[in-house]
Structure formats: C-alpha cells, structure tokens
Design a protein around this nucleic acid. Sequence first.
DNA 1: CGTACCGTTGAAGGGGGTCAATTCGAGTGG
DNA 2: CCACTCGAATTGACCCCCTTCAACGGTACG
Lengths: 269, 269
Amino acid sequence: MNAPHPSVVSLAAAVAPIELPPPASALEQLLGMPAAAAAAAGLPPVALVRVAEGATLFHEGAPARSVHLVQAGHFKVVRVGEDGYEQVLDFAGRHELLGCDGFADGHHRSAAVALEESWVYVLPVAELLRLCHQLPGFGRRWQAAIGRLVARTGEMAWLMAAVGAEKRTARFVLLYARRMAALGLSSRRLNLRMGRRDIASHLGLAHESVSRSFSLLAEGGLLRVDNREIEILDRERLEAFARCTRGYGEPAPRRARGSAASAATATSH
Amino acid sequence: MNAPHPSVVSLAAAVAPIELPPPASALEQLLGMPAAAAAAAGLPPVALVRVAEGATLFHEGAPARSVHLVQAGHFKVVRVGEDGYEQVLDFAGRHELLGCDGFADGHHRSAAVALEESWVYVLPVAELLRLCHQLPGFGRRWQAAIGRLVARTGEMAWLMAAVGAEKRTARFVLLYARRMAALGLSSRRLNLRMGRRDIASHLGLAHESVSRSFSLLAEGGLLRVDNREIEILDRERLEAFARCTRGYGEPAPRRARGSAASAATATSH
DNA sequence: CGTACCGTTGAAGGGGGTCAATTCGAGTGG
DNA sequence: CCACTCGAATTGACCCCCTTCAACGGTACG
C-alpha cells in the first residue's frame, strides 16, 4: 500500500512528466506519427504521468477535463453503486482510453484505479478537437478508438450472456488472451493483473465462484492456474466450451481424457 | 410481418427520403442548428429513411459506411453468437446513435432491428469528420453523443450486476423510464416496444423469469403490468428495491400493505 | 377455425450465492 | 529468525433462486 489514501493527489506526487517512454509510444500510434513530427506540426507536448499502484486516476463524478491514454500498466474501471457495492465495468491496458464516458455531461461516470504502477498520457478534451482539425488522418484514428470503446459494450454483453460461472470465466480468459495477443504479448501464458474479487465483480459472480471455476477449468485440463498466472493448455476445447452461451448442460469438460475427438466432448449427452 | 425476409433491401423499398419530419428533428438537435441554417452553411442534405417493423437496418459484419441517428421508433441492437444465440446488447430510441461500433475496423459488430416502424437519419462517416471541421460547436455535441454511448457500458453493467431476476427487471424498468423522461415523455406510464424474449436476452435471463418478475413486482404494488403497458406505481420503493445490487435477501416487497413506512419493508425477516 | 406466437403460470432439478474454515504469502515488529 | 497479523485464494456445506420443461389462455392472421 504505497498509496495510503488512494487519491488523485498521488498524481502530483508522481515523477515529473517525461516526454518519451522506453518502447513504442501509445501516443505516437494514436497520432499516427512520431512525437518529433507532431512537435514540428506545432502541437503542444502531451504530458505523460505516473500513477502508483492502487491510486485513483480520476474519481466518479469528478469533472472530466481530459481523457487518458494508457501507455503502460493496467487499470480497472469501477462504479460504486448507491449501496456501496463496487462494480468493475472494465479493465484497461496499454493503448486503451480512459474517461471517455465523461464526454456525456462533463463529469466522469466511473473511476479508474491503477492495478499496478502505470503511465498514462493526458489528453485535454480541447486538444482533441484541435487535433481533429489540425492533424490530417487523426480523425479516422480517433474514430477507430471510439469504435473500439463502443464495441466494449458488446464484449461485456457477451461475457454476461453466458450462464454458468465456468462458461463466464472461460470467456473472460479468452477475452483477456485476445487483448494480450493484440498487444503482441503471449496469448497462452497470461498474467492477470487483477484479483479474484475484481474479476468476480466484473463477471457478476461471487469471488468464490470465480475461484471454483478456475479450479474446475484446470481440473478439466483446459487451463493451468497458479494464483494470477494462467496458462491456456487447450485453446480448442476452451473456445468450444465457451461457445454455447445458454444451457447449464455440458456442465464442465472435466476429465475429458479422449485425446483428439474435438467434434464433441465425450460427456454422456 | 410486413417484412418477409428482414433485410436492408427493405430500405430501398421504403418511402423516398423526406427532408423534414413532423416534430422537432433529432438531426437539428445534434447539429445544434435548424436544417435551414445547416443548408445555408453549405452542408449536403441528410437522408431520412424509413425502416419497417422487423426490418434490419444493418447486419452484423456488414461494412460500416455510415452511422444512423434515430428520429422516430425503436431498435434493438443484437449480436448473434457463434452458437446462434441472439444476444440483445441494447435498445435505442429517438436521439440515439446506431452503428458506432463499426468505427473500430469498418465493419459492424452488431445488427440493428426495428421494433416498430422507424425513421433514421443516415450520416456517412466521411460527413462526420467534415462536420467536425466545418460546423463550429458540432465537435462538442458529437463528443457528448459519443460519451453517452460509452456510458451505456456502465448502464449495462449496472443492469447485470444485480443478482435476482426481480432486481434486474426493476433496474431495467427504471432505466427505461429514465430514457423516456429524457425524451420528455411520461416516466410513469411506459410503453415497452420490445417483447419479453428481447428483454430477457438483454438481461441475461430466461423469458419466463422476466414474466415472473413483472408479476411479482406487480403483486408487490410497485408496478402495474398489462402486457407491454407498464405503470410505475411506487417509484420510491421501486428504486429502493433496485438499489442494493447484491444479496438474494429482501426477496421481494410482496404485499407490503404498510402505508408510508418506507424505511424498511415489513417482511418478516 | 386452425395456426402461430406471445405471455403467463406450474413443477422439478441443479447451479451458485452465502457463510464458514483453512492454507498460503507478504509485511511488520519483536 | 520467528511470532503475529492481514489479506488473498481455495475448498466445503447448505439452501434459495433461476433454468428448464411443460401446459394453458389470449390475440393476430389467413
């Protein structure tokens, strides 16, 4: 707990904004050009700030003056219900936007909490409109980013549509793996940055159910689970299992020792 | 079924595009100016097309060349899973945008089906960028619309977070009422445009459970249910009931005859 | 009048929520 | 180094709620 009272204050206590991070910059990819070219085009430099683990990037209800582009690290997007229940809306990693729901009325409708030490670019909303005007091609990129954001609703619906905790957990793992693959990382060995509670809140389950699901999927030989280290052992069967949204049937592919009969799992029907 | 094979073809068979609809135009509100002023600014006219009940505005996977602004009527946004299960992602009415998830890669990730005879404005994506450049103030309005769209993820999460079919149904009713209020319509007497199956798919429940939930909420005196005609009898208690997301407890406020004791329902506990 | 679909209600069965105990690891201070 | 604490993660047991299967009434339509 290097953040005693998680607050935006921790931002001020962070290291001074840097100009260019170690690997490829998420900002450059969004702009569609290297930072040097952007500077030459007369664009003001974009701040890159550090967010400590457990710190809140922005609070629910706070005025939304800027959006954030994740350069490194991971966040959870949460909303606290009127009853105090913390609902995890989404997880966001590199190249993803945070805070766009604040566009609606100028106030954030969710909070973003860093799951680990992270770095984000700060893009004032006023800058965004100017970028659309000045940078040719940025409009398209910005629209694409918005499209991916809107598509998140579909992903979430896909998650929640599955009945059965195991199916839902399987879909979560597949979704997470897909995002890792999009970042060029391994989609077999996953390093979950969030705890079981956060996963459970995201999936609408009890954290015990998530734990049980992981165990059952591992018992079935689909996954190897070691705390937050996940390895997909049999992607074929995992996807087949997650495919059918409805039906408690096909309870779990437990002990399907049959080797390559991928057509149908050898459950007794 | 006036649409034998629901298809975009029905669009061509629709009445010729009109220029101005009867009441206030959703397009004018998005543009921030009357259509006459927009025309004077050199903007090309925007097509307003009719979509028959049951017709598909755009299909999943189809190339996304334009977004649609609902002027009248209602749509359901659906995604068909690989297993053929139809998942309702959202419902969209007047003043709402359809097809923005296609921004991501140029292809629609969901389909839009008209629940009744509807009218939509067709906004080519290329036009949108030009509007941002030419129309002062449009950028802000467009951002706000995007923000509302992104905020939908939070609404959906709020829906699904509730455990218990009754709570989830109650939240759906409240959400629907809120949208009706935003349109200036009555938020007490609701006219659901979608069937129980669609609601169930949207809430991740069996359609029988939705039906039962409506009956139980009606039995508790919170709602009056007559097929698709819903009336909110006691908004106070309905919101209190929907408030707590978790806990099967407080099963249902059935037969709470006690008049004004709103602090705690008089269940035997 | 028959068909088809929607909406409602009943009965049975199982999955997951809740509560509870246990293990394990990290951090802390003796 | 060890005792202690705290939290995360796992596992077990019980029981309610929801899914599923089934039947029934109502309405639109040919």
